[in-house]
Design a protein around this nucleic acid. Structure first.
Lengths: 231, 231
DNA sequence: TGTACATCAGTGAACGCGCGTTCACTGATGTAC
DNA sequence: TGTACATCAGTGAACGCGCGTTCACTGATGTAC
């Protein structure tokens, strides 16, 4: 049972997180300021220190918050489609990531943009939520191989094989070396495409139909994963 | 003929650019400060305004500077290999981009990271230098198609075809719709992979052999471009 | 049920810091006659 | 070659701003007897 004080405290912490998110939108990660959050919260700046030990901890809070929401969104979208349709699962995963990023460009930038100078996200807190998308993608890759899909590409060199062995042991996901490389390409290709779109790398009006272009890219990456032609 | 005063002026402007680059490394784009540059230049802060109209203009200077160096580096690497060996040209292009980015993470972040809040690079100045890599890649793609290479993937939908028509007209590069999509994937895949490595998205020690992993990714992207199997 | 004490949210002032930009100025370097 | 004037790099003070963090404090909420 929670006391009124506990509830008020949780509410205020939630408000701080929400305001932090909003400030991220306007001022970016480097411009995130405890004083500004305190102002919007209607409270004197030192009061925020009752809830958050420092500016960097607020940033960590927001990183975890963003990774968690992205992960949950992508997982939900992928889980909502037919398990047997591997191509559709990949498309759902990719599309959900893109949609979330376009809806939340500042939070996306916090996760996938340039690192904030002077700040390093503590691995203990961010690793879990930060790996949900790639874990989901590896599960999908394993299912695909089990269903007879074969990724494209040559055999991996020894150095990559060694990494692959370690990663398989860590995550317990039965994928071949080649599928692992293909999954990493799908991962970086997906977020590369999303980053170009969100960060405006494509140029102001080079592509009139970015959603269709994205679908084409996702289709080619499905080919790399071997999803189009199940054996 | 340049006067001593002109030479001194050019030298000081070059010093400001160099110091700006160095500050980028330590403090990031959002932390770039005219006062700090003036301090390092050994001059009072207002003196810098003789050379640069404002902080944002210094940022633009650095963006153009970085795009220009990246473009020149990649072009030189690609030009140094056998014209007939299309796969090698792609590998040289990709490898040079990665090396430059790893050597210059802060400048790379300025170009390909999250946008600096409150700053928008003026298109007139950055478009030229900013498109050198993709232009080079499209030239390579056109050469590949001329040599009989066929990219993987289905036919593009009408919306993408329309964009492709416009882009072909703008750049005068004879590539098919499918090759254009493949080139865009190669482009975003390349910079996605580089960004993950430079920005630390892979995790602290997930991959012991990032160079080999990158080579594998580049190889798969070559497959998408159809470079491995010339007809 | 009532009193004494502990907890804790929030205050307000202060510390020392850095920032972009403007402005009137000094003094050296260049130019025209 | 010498003088008068124009150009322009750099100075120093100021404007008004925001930041993270500490600290002694007030006063309300909760708890133990």
């Amino acid at each position: 049972m929670s006391t009124p004080r506990e509830r008020a405290r949780a509410q205020t912490l939630a408000d701080i997180t929400r305001l932090g998110r909003e400030h991220l939108v306007t001022y970016g990660a480097a411009g995130l300021s405890l004083r500004a959050v305190a102002r919007d919260l209607g409270v004197v700046s030192s009061a925020v220190y009752r809830y958050v030990p420092s500016r960097d901890d607020l940033l960590t809070l927001l990183v975890v918050d963003a990774y968690t929401e992205l992960g949950a969104t992508v997982e939900a979208a992928e889980a909502a489609v037919d398990r047997q349709d591997l191509l559709l699962r990949w498309e759902a995963l990719a599309g959900a990531a893109r949609t979330w990023a376009l809806d939340q460009p500042a939070r996306y930038g916090l996760l996938f943009g340039s690192p904030v100078p002077g700040y390093a996200a503590p691995a203990e807190q961010t690793t879990g939520p930060g790996t949900r998308v790639i874990m989901l993608l590896l599960t999908l890759a394993a299912d695909a191989e089990a269903a007879g899909c074969r990724p494209s590409g040559r055999a991996a060199p020894p150095a990559v094989t060694a990494d692959a062995d370690r990663i398989r042991a860590e995550i317990g996901c039965p994928v071949s070396d080649q599928m692992l490389v293909a999954a990493v390409l799908a991962w970086v290709g997906l977020f590369g495409a999303v980053s170009f779109e969100v960060f405006g790398q494509y140029g102001r009006d080079t592509f009139g139909a970015p959603a269709q272009l994205f679908a084409e890219i996702v289709d080619r990456l499905a080919g790399v994963l071997g999803l189009s032609a199940p054996g």
